[in-house]
Structure formats: structure tokens, C-alpha cells
Amino acid sequence: MYTPFILPELKKTKKYLILLLLPVWVFLFFNLNYIADFLTFSVFNLQEGKHLTQAVWFFIFEVPKVMLLLVLIIFLVGIIRTWFSPEKTRKALEGKSLFTGNVLAASLGIVTPFCSCSAIPLFLGFVEAGIPLGVTFSFLIAAPLINEVALVLLIGMFGWKIAVIYVTTGLIIAIVSGFVLEKLKLQRFVAEWVYRIKASQQGIEELKPTYSDRIQAGFTAVKEIVGKIWIYILIGIAVGAGAHGYVPDDFLGTLLGKGNWYSIPLAIVLGVPMYSNAAGIIPVVSVLIEKGVSLGTALAFMMSVIGLSLPEVIILKKVLKWQLIAVFVGVVASGILIVGYIFNFLL
């Protein structure tokens, strides 16, 4: 990013503080069990075995666990992202052949810092640079779908395996959807004015950030993202805690379990109008799974909530005609559907 001014430098003392924070982090993270036990049974004096106790323990245990993971991973992702930018991504994608382009675009979609409010300038900039529509779509699908907050929460609540599965299937959906959209030759459904725009290449230079800048970017990311989502996480975990103690096991299982063929499409349809951030939805998903909803269905629901959202569609409406938006939603939804069925079949 072009930064003509100097970012406020971290003071030296602050840098040492970071080193001190890490052992504290490790200590807390691996002792949460005891902390939750202590608070629940000794401080709040709750009796073992009751629903309320279960709910309270779950809440006290999950909130710091998720917060600790979030802070660490968002900090690291914030630093990693300083090596990437939409401008570099565009350059990397220029002149790539179709399939390679899709793979690259989807992968870069994960790490490129990108805010959905910049979706339109980014789309226009990519089209202007002659990047195929399908490749651009691979990027636009992967960027929101594979989300670092979702990743953190999945690691925290289900472990590494599910998190890897999430990233892999997300990538595949983005690559294949983009490829299919290109093959369908839908260029005529892009709003005409898009092709008339002549963007200037004003030659905006990019300054190389220093290491201090990169660490600062990590802090900024933590401050911005955690500051924005902590409340959703609290609410999500509270809902989870409530359900944990009170919703009978297998209640949802019969409704959205493996046996029902319609459970996945239903989950996807329910997910589209819901634009909860990834942060709020995952604690809920974790409870769904615990209560008997199959993994494929739960993942399909989550991907639908974060990957297909009405606000995003409304933004895209400015540059795409409705036919193309319909195909876009249809292709991505089919991708999620297939992934959901594969999981339910395999697991």
C-alpha cells in the first residue's frame, strides 16, 4: 500500500511487551479448563450436572478460548497480508490462462486484503486490465468465503481437520465456479457502462513497508476486526451456551440430520438472507453439530451465510445484470450443495 506518511512507530518497550505476551497467551490458553472450573464451581458456586451449570461453564470456557485464538491469528494474518495487495494480485493475474488464472485468483483471494465495499472498483479494475470474467469471479468468491475469522473459529471448535477441509472445499468452489462462469460466456450480462470505462493507470507507486509497519499492521488488524466482531462472538457463544444446556440432543438431528435429503438445500436457502458475520454464525454451527445436525449440512449452512449474502448481491447489481447475478448465485450454491452432500456421504 502506498503510504507517503510514516505510520506511528511502535516504541521499543512495546516490542518487548509483545514477547512477554506470548507466554501469557500460551499459559492462559492451556489452562482454560481449570479457569472455567474454578469460576463455575468455586466463584459462582454452581452445582455440577445442572443445565445452567453446563451453559455457564461452556460460556466461560469458550469466550476466552475463541478470543485468544482470534487475537493471535488475526495478528499473524494482518502481518502476512502486508505482502499482498489487490494491485499486486491484479498484476499477477494479468495474462494468465483460464484454469491457472482461476486457481491463482482463488488462492490470492484468501490472503489479499479486501473489503466488500471495494468490490466494485476492484471488479472494474480487473475488467479494465483484461482479466477474464471467470478469473475475477474466482477471486470475488474466494475472498469472502474463505475468511480468517471463520478459520479461527473452526480450529477452536472443531480442530484442524475441519478447518483444512473448509479451506480446501472453499478453494475448490471458488475455482470451479469461476471456471464454469467463464465457460458460460456471460460477458453480455455485465452492465454496458463497465466496458466503456477507461481507467487511467496513474502509476500509483507502492512503498515497501518496513518490518515495523508490518507489525503495526498486525495490531491494526486486531484492533479493527476484533473491535468489530467481539459482540457477535459473545452473542453467538451465548446462544450456543443456551442451546448447549437446554436444547435436547437429537432435536435438530431429526430435522436436519443425514437422513433427510432436503436438509442441505434447506440449510443453503436459510443461509442466503442471513448475513451474520462468520464470527456470529460459527458458535451456532458448533451447537447445531453437537445437537445432531450432520457436518455437511452445518458446513453448507455456514458457507451459504458467509459466501452468499444479499448485501453482496446488491453491491454487484451495480455492475452485473440480474441474469448474471442469478447464474453466479446458482453456481456458487450448487458448489456448496455438492460439498455438503459429499461430506454427509463420506462422514
Binding site: P86, E87, R90, C115, C117, S118, P121, L122, L124, G125, E128, I197, K198, A199, S200, Q201, Q202, G203, I204
Partner: peptide
């Protein structure tokens, strides 16, 4: 887009 930016 006249200004050539990708991010607002």
C-alpha cells in the same frame, strides 16, 4: 476509476 485505484 479515472484515478486508477482498486480500493476505496
Amino acid at each position: 476509476m479515472q484515478y486508477g485505484i482498486l480500493r476505496t
